[in-house]
Design a binder for these strands. Structure first.
Lengths: 106, 106
DNA sequence: TGGCTATATGGCCATATTACCAAGTATCAA
DNA sequence: TTGATACTTGGTAATATGGCCATATAGCCA
């Protein structure tokens, strides 16, 4: 039964890991607002197209995004509506961390 | 100004990266309920004590946890109250991903 | 079919992570 | 002071990640 719990944390960690890259966070942010194809994302991210494609594969692998193929185009979009919670929590951590550091400097 | 935005995503990614490990997620989960010293955490995590100590350093570095030293003991605790949001969102993603996969199997 | 566009994949290299052991620092207690 | 306990840090080996280039693969249109 211990095993089961470990697997649960591993599954969660996979999701966190998928988000643990600036380009992927940017993509999630963009894709949350509207679906986009790889070319558009590549332009926004400013990396090689193959790199963006691989990032998307990682996000898709853990179920954070989904694809819709329209001819030669692949439109990606975010699947869950709870990402804002993620982002705002990160912001909170960043802010409180900043405050903490300032305090410890006094 | 582009630069500034990129830095913002990098800062966020750092936090996500800090959470992107099963042991660290477990530790965050435990530390959210109550503060614990390294020895107790080591027992719970089941890794080398030095490994746990390094994981804690990573969490502390990004401001997710804080330490209180009491003699020879170091008591760690979670600093922000928004981790439940994180975890429940992860759960949502895991669930919806599961459903999605089941559907695509039909 | 043949050529063009849009994505995905494989290969390769540089770098980052993670884990453990060993050695160092710090506190407490005798 | 010595020894024991609680952590932290440095070293190192194995593995994972991230990026680009080159190369598929797939759809579209002439």
């Amino acid at each position: 039964m211990e095993e089961k719990i470990r697997k649960q944390y591993e599954a969660r960690a996979k999701i966190a890991k998928a988000m643990a890259h600036p380009s992927r966070l940017l993509m999630l942010d963009l894709l949350q607002k509207q679906e986009m194809c790889v070319g558009e994302l590549t332009e926004q991210v400013g990396a090689d197209q193959s790199t963006v494609s691989k990032h998307l594969a990682i996000l898709k692998e853990v179920g954070l995004v989904d694809v819709r193929k329209a001819g030669a185009l692949s439109y990606y979009r975010v699947t869950c509506g709870c990402l804002d919670g993620f982002f705002s929590c990160m912001e909170t951590v960043l802010l409180s961390d900043l405050k903490g550091r300032q305090k410890s400097l006094k």
